[in-house]
Write a protein that binds this DNA or RNA. Structure first.
Lengths: 249, 249
DNA sequence: AAACTGTCCACTGTCTGCAGTTTATGTTTT
DNA sequence: AAAACATAAACTGCAGACAGTGGACAGTTT
């Protein structure tokens, strides 16, 4: 089939071309970057016009994101970015602790020196970025670290679940002016995890991870706790208070 | 708004109308029932003709299922039902143990007497179905029980994750003539879980659940272990050995 | 003034059609 | 006869168009 050695790489690039895929990434970026805010409606026709394409690829992307729970859809009315309640924060972070702890348990026995070095380098990058005030890079390395651990677990289910959680977390913090941990502190918070992993102590590693995630959780929770003690900021989709339903599998 | 009490039910029926949704359910059923077998191709046009609709709703459904990982897509070549390796079995079941254990931890403190009664009734139904040889009902109650526990956790992330796992498990066992646990034994295996929950002992409940899932895991694993010790039966999508890629978020 | 009814507009859900690829078939060449 | 090639069929990806529904607004009624 492929006579040219570089065909695979080229092929992959070409594959990425599918318009639906591009739209999906475009939308995911809009969601996680805060350009799209909770409750916002997604206008298929307008988006298609903006991107200079037809509505079909747009619909496929949007429909997929709805199936995955990142958008809520109201039949015949459109798709909306979810709204988040304090409970959503708790659900996401408690589940995240569950998943990433499990990832560590599966990853650690499989890790070799190069893997540990990898993680160490990521933390160094975080610290350097924090010192230099490059917040975007800090954030990026942060995500990469957590993701890497899930990859190292070798468990595709875990990795897949983490991807979903990761997206949710980014959506949660995207549109609030988050009262964040100080950058350097945030970067340093990952040191104990990587060190514990390097020592080979599973329980210590899990504990370190849990502690770190609980700290982050607390920061995010504080934001959502403000506008109403436990009461829903707005329940998913105020656009149609009674019958908005999440597209389910 | 609604003066008529049954309006909600009616509304739900009307909402269900979307063709994409219907196709999605149709396909999910085909996947989990074994009517579609791993490696099988999904022919959009043919499916559309069969259902008497156009290709658009079909594409939306298929695309969504691919994004959720239930299908693999090969650009310009089509969508295929995943193939499964022994590792997939291990990944799914180990992760399932992680998720359902977590569900119990969150659910138990929230459970009230009616909830315990609910679960007890489900187990009774399983036992009755097993004794009567109604395997379909047994299987259905089994799934309902596990799902109910995730619901009782009150954690939407957990429930969502469980839905994905549940689908994967059904796909895993759908097309193999599974060497199953004897029906009655399978039904009775759930008793310790529900009893432990009723006693309020979290650790005992978790242990019971883990034991049960490990037993099931072993049965499924045995099937996949046969055709090659650890070697992939076939890796995802032999249709295009080199460049099948999973549609990712 | 408040509630109700009817009309208009925007948008979703779906269909048909077309272009470019991939796969299958048949033919030629060695 | 097997392999390579050429041609035809089939399918995916995308575009454009249409019908039906929901929502907003204005006019009307009580």
């Amino acid at each position: 089939m492929s006579r040219f050695p570089e065909t695979n790489a080229v092929q992959r690039l070409i594959d990425t071309l599918s318009l639906s895929d591009q739209v999906r990434h475009y939308l995911l970026d809009a969601l996680t970057s805060g350009r799209l805010r909770p409750g916002d409606r997604i206008n298929e026709a307008e988006l298609a016009r903006t991107l200079g394409i037809s509505r079909n690829p747009v619909r496929e992307a949007v429909s997929g994101l709805a199936q995955r729970g990142f958008l809520v859809s109201a039949p015949r009315r459109g798709h909306f970015l979810r709204r988040f309640t304090p409970q959503d924060v708790d659900d996401v972070f408690s589940f995240r602790i569950c998943v990433e702890s499990f990832a560590i348990r599966q990853a650690l026995p499989r890790m070799r020196q190069p893997d540990h070095d990898d993680l160490a380098r990521l933390v160094e990058r975080m610290i350097a970025a924090a010192r230099a005030g490059r917040l975007a890079e800090l954030h990026q390395a942060d995500m990469a670290l957590h993701r890497r651990i899930c990859e190292l677990s070798g468990n595709r289910q875990t990795l897949r679940a983490h991807e979903g959680i990761d997206t949710e977390v980014q959506m949660l913090i995207a549109y609030v002016d988050l009262e964040r941990e100080p950058p350097l502190q945030s970067a340093l918070a990952h040191l104990p995890i990587v060190e514990a992993l390097a020592s080979g102590d599973v329980e210590r590693s899990v504990a370190a991870m849990q502690h770190h995630l609980e700290t982050t959780w607390a920061f995010v929770h504080r934001m959502y706790g403000r506008s109403g003690r436990g009461e829903p900021l707005v329940d998913a989709g105020d656009a149609s208070p009674s019958q908005v339903r999440r597209t389910r599998g």
